[in-house]
Write a protein that binds this DNA or RNA. Structure first.
Lengths: 171, 171
DNA sequence: CCTCATTTGTTTAACTTTCAATGAGGCTGG
DNA sequence: CCAGCCTCATTGAAAGTTAAACAAATGAGG
């Protein structure tokens, strides 16, 4: 059996080539700048960070504009803890409301309020425009397609199924 | 002259097509998962978030392992304020030390200490491995190349020259 | 019915990031 | 010189995030 290669075990590291390094740096820089840019845009215009906006979007797209906390967390790729705090804040803004789940007394729904829906309606155009300017307007159709494929692959590799990733023999 | 289209002015929004939306979602998901994954890996192994690690890397690659605060901030794509706090923390860890700039009394150098260098040496292999597993091992050479090109373009569009971006007529 | 492991969601404290304000130093033109 | 403006870097408070611990409810198995 080959060594586990995920624990504290020193095989000689496979360094990145110069070209790989350039790619990686470009990725980090662009991702950092982009996140920052969108956060600022939404904070300025809509009064919330990008992640929070994303939560509202998830909700508006869901049946009855509601989602169980855990579902919402999974779909937004954040922890339940982070979501708890976020929803608390959005609730204070009046954009989301919590509702008990009838079938599971532990459960909570996050529900998009009319106000929340309105905020979304009002600021979606500006946000889409920002995304276009920063990303889509600059890429050829081919590049857009590639970006989609590439990011899907990366996400795939890190997805929840990731849970037991360093114990592959248990999956 | 065409309208400025960046201010509070409602032209009918150019929504994203379904395909564009899929691309964008993939991007957001992958970027979120990846950032989170690397933060966790480094926090667990090296006791610092990914950004902080990135700062040490910038320093180790610089002449005399030092950089002016502003330079470092620019090169890492973060604000000077954020850097100030970060360096304060790294200093507390003994991984970075501040030094006055002789030629400009306002200036400060962030200098990588030997301890800092050692931390980097110790944890670089694990980090590279994490990046490989999450990204490079999953992409074809063609995709790696595309990713580099695409992210360079996006970064380009958001770069510092961005400062007066909504006042293009002043540039 | 009871026990125990698991799931759900929240909470607390520590840490990080942002935003706005500040002070010190440099630089330019009168 | 010095007045006004810009740059360098830091600060403190508020907001957001993380990690670990927790209570309540569920549900599977005995």
């Amino acid at each position: 059996m080959k060594t586990a290669s995920g624990s504290a075990h020193a095989e000689e590291p496979r360094w990145l080539t110069d070209e790989e390094q350039r790619v990686w740096r470009s990725y980090i820089e662009a991702a950092t700048l982009l996140e920052d840019h969108l956060d600022r845009q939404l904070q300025r215009d809509a009064g919330m960070p990008h992640v929070y906006y994303g939560l509202l979007v998830k909700l508006v797209e869901s049946p009855r504009r509601r989602l169980r906390m855990t579902e919402l967390a999974k779909s937004a790729k954040i922890t339940r803890s982070r979501l708890s705090h976020a929803v608390a804040r959005l609730e204070k803004n009046g954009w989301v409301r919590r509702e008990d789940c009838p079938s599971d007394k532990r459960g909570q729904f996050a529900v998009l309020t009319d106000e929340g829906h309105e905020v979304l309606r009002r600021h979606a155009p500006g946000h889409v425009e920002a995304v276009r300017q920063a990303v889509f307007d600059r890429l050829t159709p081919q590049q857009q397609k590639s970006l989609g494929e590439i990011m899907r692959i990366i996400a795939e590799g890190l997805e929840p199924s990731e849970a037991g990733a360093d114990l592959p023999w248990l999956r």
